[in-house]
Design a protein around this nucleic acid. Structure first.
Lengths: 195, 195
DNA sequence: GCGTCATACATACCGAGGGTATGTGACCGC
DNA sequence: GCGGTCACATACCCTCGGTATGTATGACGC
């Protein structure tokens, strides 16, 4: 997350775009560097000029995706905070996150290959200040409003965050009975009952 | 899941044992086949005699781990079913699963590398994802008892299963405020409120 | 008791693919 | 107009998963 998104037409940006498509479609391990550079017209030299390894390239894409999701979730959460009902604000944030978790690119890159490539520590470290923090902030917000027990925020944040992640997977697979609406419905029922 | 656990001292079993340790400690991608065979005293020929690829070896270990967890979860679920309180029975199953989700080997092999190596399809192959099946069975059990809304079982199963997975990770990291007890406490509070 | 065949490995080798070392043209400050 | 840096290109290396092949051992029919 150093300097991002320079001129979107440069070689570096092309590499990132092609690599992201391939990582999403075939997964990290099945994507060859030669295939990436073929898709850009450049050569391996260019790729290794901008990224010190395949892993570094992956991480850059990973961070960018997380950043985009984070920005959208934050924006929606702030917008919804003006609503009177605290639930509505929190649910708005969760809906945003859920929609991201249902995206193919987010699933394959962030949720599937992320932990494996970056390692448990790295994944958590980076994920901690993004998706997780959004959920955590929402939970603590509900606690401040006196809606849920303040002593349970840590555990609840973890439970809720991962529940949403997993729901994204299930939705994308078209698993029977699992849609954005049904998940949000169940999710809302659970939250509301916490009162 | 064809024939498992023959004589536990044979070459094949040795390979499985050493490979499991390495996969757990370093992850699938960072584990070299040469390192595995070095640890057994055998050669690559032996390994490829028993397993048709590194991926096949991994999958065998993956299935075995899942099988062990499943056996324990089933045993505990059956035992707890004699309890009068349906919640207690379900929570007993969840506790079992939570403890597995907090184990290093289960995390690295099943939860982290599993999706990446086996692919999204393989991972969610219904009869493979035993963790999911166990949670789902518990949820449907509660629905039959009229405790939760029967129309929400699918979505709830997904939410609960992944909530527990994530909690396992958080616990393993020693994250503040996240322990078996705190998680089960929060979890119980949520479940109870669903009545 | 001998040929046949399968099992259980060992050894040698191959090729793909990630990474590196090095070259080179363009531009830029001075 | 020259040294230096940037943005790549080319050629090469080396690890590592996988394969092809050899071989010792025991079972089994006859």
């Amino acid at each position: 997350m150093t300097e991002d998104r320079p001129d979107a037409s440069g070689t570096r940006e092309q590499i990132l775009a092609v690599a992201k498509d391939l990582f999403e479609a075939q997964g990290y391990a099945n994507t060859r560097i030669s295939t990436i550079v073929e898709g850009t017209g450049a050569t391996k030299g260019a790729l290794f000029h901008y990224f010190k390894s395949k892993e570094d390239l992956f991480q850059t894409i990973w961070e960018r995706l997380q950043g985009e999701m984070d920005a959208e979730a934050r924006a929606n959460a702030v917008a919804a905070r003006s609503l009177k009902d605290p639930y509505a604000a929190f649910l708005a944030g969760c809906r945003t996150y859920l929609q991201w978790a249902a995206r193919r690119d987010y699933q394959q890159i962030v949720l599937i290959d992320g932990p494996s490539v970056l390692g448990l520590a790295g994944w958590y470290e980076a994920d901690n200040d993004l998706g997780r923090q959004n959920v955590s902030a929402g939970i603590r917000y509900l606690a401040r409003k006196g809606i849920i027990d303040g002593r349970r925020t840590a555990a609840l944040s973890v439970l809720v965050h991962n529940a949403l992640n997993g729901a994204g997977f299930a939705m994308a697979r078209g698993e029977a009975g699992v849609t954005v609406e049904s998940v949000l419905d169940a999710f809302e029922a659970v939250l509301k009952s916490l009162r």
